[in-house]
Simulated assay, not measured.
Amino acid sequence: MRVRLDLGYDGTAFSGWAEQPGLRTVQGELTAGLARVLRLDPAPRLTVAGRTDAGVHANGQVAHVDVPRARWDAVPGRSGTEPAAALVRRLAGVLPPDVRVHRAGLAPEGFDARFSALRRRYAYRVCDDPAGLPPLRRFDVLHHRRPLDLGAMDLAARSLVGLREFAAFCRPREGATTVRTLLAYSWTRDGDGLLVADVQADAFCHSMVRALVGAALAVGDGRRDVAWPRLVQDAAVRDPTVAVVAAQGLTLEEVVYPADGDLAARAHEARAVRTLP
């Protein structure tokens, strides 16, 4: 049975999503929790929508796991509750407090947490108050020491949207394409005075969101002009002058999927290598 898991986590104390020997990771904690609750040996294999880096948070992460039917049916025990609700409740009892599964349920036919996704939506939060960060936000907001021009940042960000080559904003990986469709990139101020980036794409390459934010901050504090990020993008080579900002301000807010009947087709489409027309 393929089970969809919707989860969130505070990435502060994690070395990212992916399991790594000797390091504490979200995948490691969740895999161990599932193995314990479902009584699986070996532990189940998880597929995730977005492999977040060390220190990155999530409110709307999605993963799937394939579970033997007998183990799924046995989750409620004698409680009489539905397996999905029982799994959420039992995972809450074994997972650490900085990771929580909000929902669980049988996935529709053709669902793949990674490849069926239409878009991932991230938020990056920045405080430019000279007094510094509010104490309760010190783990999910970046403090920028210079005042920021919101309008200039927003103009620069919007100029990067579209199907483009993002090599300038990505750490290259051998054999991987850096062509992506940036569906939305904008900046606003929220009710607490924080600058919030809304960054959405079909998929992201390594460090892409944090590099896009770094470019916008350089525009916002006057070190670069509004046209500079687009010039960097058009050069299509990794630019060492683009700062990759700290992970703490970044949160995966949402993963969007198509209607159930389109899941398999979307997964097939997403596996194709992206190229520019």
Rank of each mutant, 00 (worst) to 15 (best):
A58G: 09
L142M: 15
V232W: 03
A63G: 07
F14C: 03
H57F: 06
P108R: 06
E29A: 15
T181S: 09
A267F: 05
E109R: 10
P147W: 11
V141H: 08
E253L: 12
R89M: 10
A18Y: 01
R114K: 14
L46C: 08
F115S: 10
R90Y: 08
A157T: 06
D239K: 00
P42H: 06
A117E: 08
L195P: 11
L160R: 04
A157I: 02
A211G: 07
R224L: 10
P277Q: 04
R39P: 06
G110A: 03
A86Y: 06
A270R: 15
D10P: 01
V256D: 14
V88F: 05
L252Y: 12
A201K: 14
D128Q: 13
L160P: 03
D192L: 13
A259M: 01
R164P: 01
D112Y: 00
L95W: 00
M1F: 09
R100Q: 12
V232P: 04
V245T: 13
R100E: 09
P83A: 01
L231I: 01
R69E: 15
L148N: 07
G214T: 06
V179E: 10
R4S: 02
V141F: 09
G193E: 12
V126H: 06
V99H: 08
A184Q: 14
V245D: 10
G28Y: 02
Q200F: 01
Q248M: 08
A243Q: 10
A113W: 09
R224Q: 15
W72V: 04
A184H: 14
T31A: 05
M1C: 05
A201C: 14
R158H: 04
Q248H: 08
L155F: 11
F14H: 02
L7H: 06
G132A: 07
D190I: 02
H143F: 07
P97S: 13
R24W: 07
L38K: 05
V141W: 07
T181A: 08
G80M: 12
A70K: 06
L91D: 08
T31P: 02
V141L: 09
R119P: 00
L95P: 11
L250D: 13
A131W: 05
A32W: 01
R125G: 00
G22F: 11
A54E: 11
H57D: 11
H206D: 02
A259C: 01
Q27I: 10
A247Y: 06
R89A: 15
L252R: 08
T275E: 13
P229G: 07
A264K: 13
H64E: 08
D262S: 14
R173F: 04
L195F: 13
R210N: 02
D154L: 04
G11M: 05
P108E: 08
R189C: 03
D128K: 04
R171A: 12
T178I: 01
L87Q: 13
E19I: 00
